[in-house]
Design a protein around this nucleic acid. Structure first.
Lengths: 225, 225
DNA sequence: AGCAAAAAGCCAACCTGATTGTTTGTTATC
DNA sequence: GATAACAAACAATCAGGTTGGCTTTTTGCT
């Protein structure tokens, strides 16, 4: 379970958007695709997966539906790209922010937790969450989403592990802490609108953070099962 | 923040379904409404809110669309009833299961946590989660869902508090423990399909459970903020 | 280098199917 | 006779995908 994949984030960079093509058409194509993906993200997080229509995406991207369907032949193709794009973008920013932390901020203040929380508030994760939820009941989406999501989870785990060397003495505790952090934070995110007292949400985040610190220091042991 | 509402669950029992009406028509009406609500629950958790069409609900309930629209004039009316019904039903069963626990199971083994987890796996909560998620982006649904959900949260908190007297010495810790439990467990639920190793999910639940016990015993203090 | 053919980006109109709510009608109960 | 439970047909809307056409860029041939 604690095998550490050696893949890197750059291996995951979405294809077709990476480098600037030589000729005009390629550049134009990439630019349009990016506009479509960004519009899809806005659509997903604002209107949800159900109301994310091809018409609305095209409208928000500033092109015609025909043009959009030229770049992404079917809606499913587009959604598959959105899955990859949103995960990659969020991870990219997340890892960059983690990398900017001083060792004191990271190790003593556990600032990575707060940065993770911030990454859940982005448009990218908003869209990703919509897709994750929709994939629970939409068989077609599920087939494209689940394998990717499982892969991404592994990748995220490995990348974060590399960025937090203070955990390397206890990979088992790290695994648990990651699961714990993801579940707790995303559960909190779900209830953001329902729990409308801010202090209450802040307190929960603080508790999760200190619990993770205690897990790292060994003050709390992972249950044997 | 720690004011304890004194409302009870029975006050929340959905109207129009409670008692057995005297005449044939009333009984028949209640029976049909129940069939519709149960069909809607199945629809929601199996196909998601987006694909929960009136046609499909009627079909699963074994009646015509016309008959269904006689009982619930609009889809919104039906959904509002589903929100109330699913919450009430889940809470009813949850509290009953809690009440069946011995004091040892409840206090020492923290068996309430596992029962809460079980309540998240029910059809009722599956449907409720769909509505909760859809309410994030659907303005119309949001308006009917959010006030109810906020009310239910308070109610749930008060009911559970009454059922777990061992927490009464520290209401602040109880509030935090509830938030923590809800967020962690529902976050885990979200990732059930993605984290496909069962032992891993069991370990996380165990960790949440022991953490809550430590919070109750005072071994962990709520962060001051 | 010049030019025609091919391809790419883009758009508008159309088609099919699905969904919601309304309306009209039928049967059984009050 | 009035009302309630139920059913079926209808209208309006909107989704996704296809087709054909237009403009610009690229390619290949002479």
């Amino acid at each position: 379970m604690s095998e550490l994949p050696t893949m890197t984030l750059t291996q995951l960079e979405p294809e077709g958007l990476d480098s600037e093509g030589q000729n005009w058409q390629q550049r134009k194509s990439i630019q349009t695709r990016l506009a479509i993906l960004e519009a899809a993200i806005d659509c997903l997080q604002e209107h949800g997966f159900a109301r994310t229509t091809t018409q609305l995406i095209a409208q928000m991207a500033g092109i015609s539906r025909g043009a959009m369907l030229h770049h992404y032949a079917t809606k499913q193709d587009l959604i598959a790209s959105v899955i990859e794009y949103t995960f990659y973008r969020r991870m990219e920013n997340f890892m960059a922010a983690i990398g900017d932390l001083s060792e004191g901020e990271r190790v003593d203040r556990n600032a990575g937790i707060e940065i993770y929380w911030q990454s859940l508030l982005t448009r990218e994760f908003g869209a990703y969450l919509e897709l994750m939820m929709a994939a629970r009941t939409d068989a077609e989406l599920r087939e494209t989403f689940l394998p990717k999501a499982r892969h991404y989870e592994q990748l995220e785990r490995a990348e974060v592990f590399r960025a937090f060397p203070e955990w390397q003495g206890d990979p088992g505790a790290y695994e648990l802490a990651m699961d714990f952090c993801i579940a707790g934070m995303q559960g909190l995110l779900l209830h953001r609108d329902i729990w409308n007292e801010r202090e209450r949400r802040v307190r929960l985040r603080g508790f999760i953070s200190t619990t993770i610190l205690m897990l790292r220091s060994g003050e709390i042991k992972a249950p044997v099962g």
